[in-house]
Every structure is written in structure tokens, then in C-alpha cells.
Design a protein around this nucleic acid. Structure first.
Lengths: 339, 339
DNA sequence: TTGTATGCGTTATCAT
DNA sequence: ATGATAACGCATACAA
């Protein structure tokens, strides 16, 4: 059943039916009701392809994720996608998911855009200098970045105040009396990792604490990496009394290692982990103090909201969202104590 | 640059240019070369929306995943998606991802289909009786199921020989001399869980081993569930000498629990886990014997391949793929021994 | 308030 | 081998 048939069955022109269904004001209420009723009755659904061609907009947003990049298994990604689709579907927007080998990323954006497969993009895992954003800005394509680059003024973005999270953690540990505060991080070319790291450095300096390079350890994104990194720290002559970990899978490994070493968490070693330790962890004895952020689902919804703003032509300066993390206190940190 | 402009610049009609680019045979080789050259030169990309409208096909496949269903955080899902997009993109097919609350799943399929947003679907996590497949068959929509239902003859599907995997595990343990073989499983309304469970039962019977209902434990999809379930088993007067776990996150929990209880894995307790224990686990001392299946990426590629067959009108009976798992021996199982 | 005519960028049909 | 013309199904400028 298409528009022509529907309108014929009602004795109206396709134009009027179209207007009635799309909420145009110049249709009489009586007619609108009749039309909507009939449309529901016969189960009419407009052909989106035709509508798209006529309107020149696709009502689809793309999200490109790098193949074999390691954060593929990031469970959060799917949660974000969930928030995106939820919000987008309300606006009649489709979410297109594409994958690209890391070298071909920009080419993929180009292909999707030039074939008019999408109106714009959600770009995630931004890097400090990011050729994808450069390309999209160059050709004026709508996009929202999940995470800022070094030059965040000229586009729409969502981000957490990553530096703040680390600062809060350092300040808290410092108030407990810690001085030797270790820091474990994901690769620093990822901007969130970089920002969190900067927050750590700044807060350490502000607190007048020395930063021992040996206590700053790249530990990647995984449990295993965290475990190994922690083992290295524990082997040192002068180990840390507290550890901050910039991502939670890594944090699980750190916790595990500390427990295996027989340390009393919260007394002999203080631990603060970004995003906390996942609910589905086998470790239940310790409630890990965490730097807490809104759920990834909420992030997805917000990203979609921003995208809709961009598509509506809102100035990008109004479309920059920064959410602040906060500390959720657990039992994994406290004053220094030797027993 | 659209088709009209391109053709004008070549002094040809849009028709000829279209034919040349789409590989129609009735174009002279000379013309074709000229056209392809020019198209590349100016970076012409056909407008897919217009093409779709003209051809009446969307070249897009949908995948609907249930919101808040617990397997959202299934890392494998993204790997499958990766394989799908990879294969689909070669065929010029888009992958649309939508989410739906569990009650609204069928309605979502309906909406996507009637609005001609997609040509067909990949349906995953099939249940033994699955209203989604019923609906899609009813309205004749193309789809490929990842997992069979109770009536698998009339549609295209991909599946693992789930029963076989459990049988292999039971047989192996039986040959080691085990008799009290426990089985932990995900919810049985998921067909893969049901099939694996049936394989366990059948193999136990075939081996002449008694099935103690107390040794068959629903343990869900997570580490925590596995940990708790294992604790329950260990508390029993007559516990198992071997455990089979039907999913690997759960298996991590089981392993952890057994280690915490001080058991020597492979001697005091044998363990076989579907898909093995994830590489990024902190447990490195034990190499878990696993029921091994091809990667989820490969599954994705195969699913896409099947879908392309369906769209091409191939008979569904030729589009049913069953892959067999095999045992990858590790150090987590062996003959019974008390020390 | 409603209808007519035209356009969106392709592909397909039927000539030539 | 190439071209003119008509779909594809909807939205919209313009007319009534």
C-alpha cells in the first residue's frame, strides 16, 4: 500500500494525505483524523527511500569502528550504540554501522558520505590529532565527536572531564596521607588517556607531590596488562602506597594481582579505578573506590541528542557537552597503615 | 557531481554512462573505459538513495538486538558484526543496527521492513520457539538465523553443532575415568544452551553414566554466576570430579572459584569450557581445555555470505551451514587423582 | 483547505 | 551500441 493507493481509497490527493500524515498545519482536523485512521487501518508505512530522495536527506547516521584494533571487545561500545539507536529511532533516524581497517578509515567515511548513505557520523575514540575529524570538517559533513581533539572549538563533541577525574582521585589519596601514588594508563595517543594522565600530573604538582617516573606505567586495556603492570610495581624496592588505574578492565587485573600478593586492599594498598570494577567480577570482598561517570547508555543518548542538534543546524558551540565525574567511595582506599 | 553532469561532460547519455559503470554487456569497451576513467577522475559516486528507489531494493540488512537483555555485553556480538560489515561492504550492502526492548522486537522488525529500510535481517540468539522467525517467514522476508529453532527446515541458518561439542567433552572426560561430571549452563530457552545441554545428556547416557540432577546447574552468562554455582557444587557432600561449562565468561568464574578453594585443576578437578577462557584473563597458571569453534568474525562473514545467497534467490535448503567444534586440549583436565 | 505539476538521481523499457 | 522516455514513491512550490 503506497501513498497513491491510500489517497485514492480516501478520495483525496496524495499531497493532502502526505501533509496530513506529516503534521502540516494547513490540513483540516477532520481530514487529518480520517487520514491517520485509514493509514493505521491498512498499515501504511511511507517508503523511506522515496522520502529520502524527495527530501534530499538520508535520515541515517554512520558509526565506523576500526577492525582488529583491540577495543573492539569494549563492552561499552555496544551500550553506547544502544543509547544511540534508542534516541535516533525516536527521530526516525537509522544507525549504520561500518567497520574499516585502521588505514582505510578516512576512505570509509568518504565512501559513506559521497554515496549519500548517511547524513553524518558519530566519531568515537578520538585521538589528540585526528585525521578523521580533519576530513569531516574539511568537507563540511555533520558529525559529533565522542572525545575532544587538541582543537575542540570548531565542532560538536561530547566528553568527560577526564582531567578532573584523576585530580579528584589524587586529591583524595593525598588527604589520606599518600605520597607515592602510582598511575596506570592506556595508550596516551587516545585522548581520554592523555587527559586523565594530565589530570594526574597536574594534581600531583598542585599537591606538591613528586612524580616518580617509575610509578607511571603503561598497562593497556586489559586484565592481563593490569596484572603484569602491578607485579612490576610490587617488585620495586620502593613501591607505591596507592594506585590509580585509568580504565576498569585493567583495574581488575591490578586488584587481582594485589590480592594474590596477599595485600590488604584499603590498608596496605589503596586503589582507585576509573569506572570501578565491573559488576560481573568474581572479586566480591572489596568494594573498589571508583571515578564514576554516567552510564554508556546515557552517553549514547546524549551523543544522539547532539547529532540531532547538528542536523538541525544549531551552532556547534552550543553542542559541546562536558560531563563531570565524581568519586564513589568504596573500601579500597584509606589512610596509610602497615598492618 | 551526479550522473547527468558526468554524462554531459562526456557527451553521452546518462543511460550509457549508467550501463558502463554497472557492467552491462551492451556497452563498447572503448566507451566503458572512457566512462570509468572520467568517473574516477571527478570522484563520482552514485547516489544510493536514487539507485535504491529505481531498483526497488535497499541493499541494506538489519540486525536487531534486544535492549537490556544481559547479553548486550557479549563481546562476541561485536566480532560478528565486524565479519558481517566486512563481507557486506564488498557487496555494497549496508548493515543497519537497531535496538528494541524485548517486548517490542517483532514490532521493530515490522517497522524496518514496512518502511523498506532494509531488505532482510540477521536474527541472532534464536530461541527454540521464536516469534521473530515466525513473523519473518509469514511475510516472506529474507533472513538468516544465527542458531536454529525447533523447526529449521524452511529457512536459512548458520549454527554450530552444539550437541557435538558437549558430547566430545563428555566422551573425553569419561575416557579419563570420570563419572561424576557436572554441567553448568546458560538459560535453556536459548537454543544453543539447550542443544549443548542435550548433547551432554545424550553423551552421558551413551556412556552409561548416571546424570545427577544436582550436578546440572543453571549458572547464567557471567563470571559471578559461575563462581557462585561452583561454590554450591563444592559444598555438596558428593561433588563432581569434572565440570563442563557451556559459556566462557561463566567458565572464568568457575575456574576462579576452584582455584580459591585450593583445588589442583586437572588433577583434583577437571574442567572443560566452551570457547575456553578469554585470553585477557588474569589466570595464567592453567591452560583450560576448551571446546573450540571458529572465531566470531568468521561466523559473521559466513552469515553475510548466506544472506547474500538468500537475496540472490538461492533455495534456503542450500543455505544451511553447520560447523563442528573440536576439543583443544589444555592442562585443566586429566585422569582422576586425589593428590 | 485542497489539488496539480514538478523534481529528487537513478535504473529499466523500448526505440533507433 | 546508444539514446529518449518513463518509472520508482514521495515532498513541495505553486495554483486554485
Amino acid at each position: 500500500m503506497d501513498l497513491k493507493q491510500l489517497s485514492a481509497s480516501l478520495g483525496l490527493s496524495p499531497t493532502t494525505v502526505s501533509r496530513a500524515l506529516n503534521g502540516y498545519p494547513e490540513v483540516s482536523e477532520r481530514t487529518r483524523e480520517r487520514v491517520i485512521e485509514a493509514a493505521k487501518e491498512v498499515g501504511y508505512e511511507p517508503n523511506v527511500t522515496a522520502r529520502r530522495l524527495a527530501r534530499g536527506a538520508v535520515d541515517a547516521i554512520g558509526i565506523v569502528h576500526p577492525t582488529g584494533a583491540g577495543h573492539l571487545d569494549d563492552p561499552r561500545f555496544l551500550e553506547v550504540v544502544d543509547g544511540l539507536t534508542e534516541r535516533f529511532s525516536k527521530a526516525g533516524i537509522d544507525l549504520l554501522i561500518a567497520s574499516a581497517r585502521q588505514k582505510e578509515e578516512v576512505a570509509t567515511y568518504k565512501r559513506l558520505l559521497q554515496g549519500r548513505r548517511v547524513d553524518g557520523f558519530i566519531v568515537h575514540h578520538t585521538r589528540r590529532v585526528d585525521p578523521r575529524l580533519d576530513y569531516l570538517q574539511e568537507c563540511g559533513a555533520p558529525f559529533v565527536a565522542y572525545g575532544r581533539t587538541d582543537t575542540p572549538d570548531s565542532y560538536a563533541w561530547f566528553d568527560f572531564d577526564n582531567a578532573l577525574g584523576s585530580s579528584l582521585a589524587v586529591r583524595r589519596l593525598q588527604e589520606f596521607g599518600h605520597r607515592r601514588i602510582a598511575y596506570m594508563h592506556a595508550p596516551l595517543e587516545l585522548h581520554f588517556a592523555y587527559q586523565r594522565y594530565q589530570g594526574y600530573l597536574d594534581a600531583m604538582h598542585a599537591a606538591g607531590l613528586p612524580v616518580d617516573p617509575g610509578l607511571v606505567v603503561p598497562a593497556g586495556f586489559g586484565r592481563r596488562g593490569g596484572y603484569e603492570a602491578m607485579k612490576t610495581l610490587l617488585d620495586r624496592a620502593e613501591g607505591p602506597t596507592a594506585v590509580i588505574v585509568d580504565n576498569n578492565l585493567c583495574g581488575v587485573g591490578v586488584l587481582r594481582c594485589a590480592l594474590d600478593a596477599g595485600l590488604k586492599i584499603g590498608r596496605q594498598l589503596s586503589l582507585i579505578v576509573y569506572d570501578g570494577v565491573p559488576v560481573d567480577s568474581v572479586v566480591t570482598s572489596v568494594q573498589v573506590t571508583s571515578i564514576e561517570q554516567p552510564t554508556s547508555y546515557a552517553v549514547g543518548v546524549q551523543l544522539a541528542e547532539l547529532m540531532i542538534g547538528v542536523l538541525a543546524g544549531q551552532p556547534v558551540q552550543e553542542l559541546q557537552t562536558l560531563w563531570s565525574p565524581r568519586i564513589a567511595a568504596g573500601s579500597s582506599d584509606g589512610p596509610i597503615s602497615e598492618h
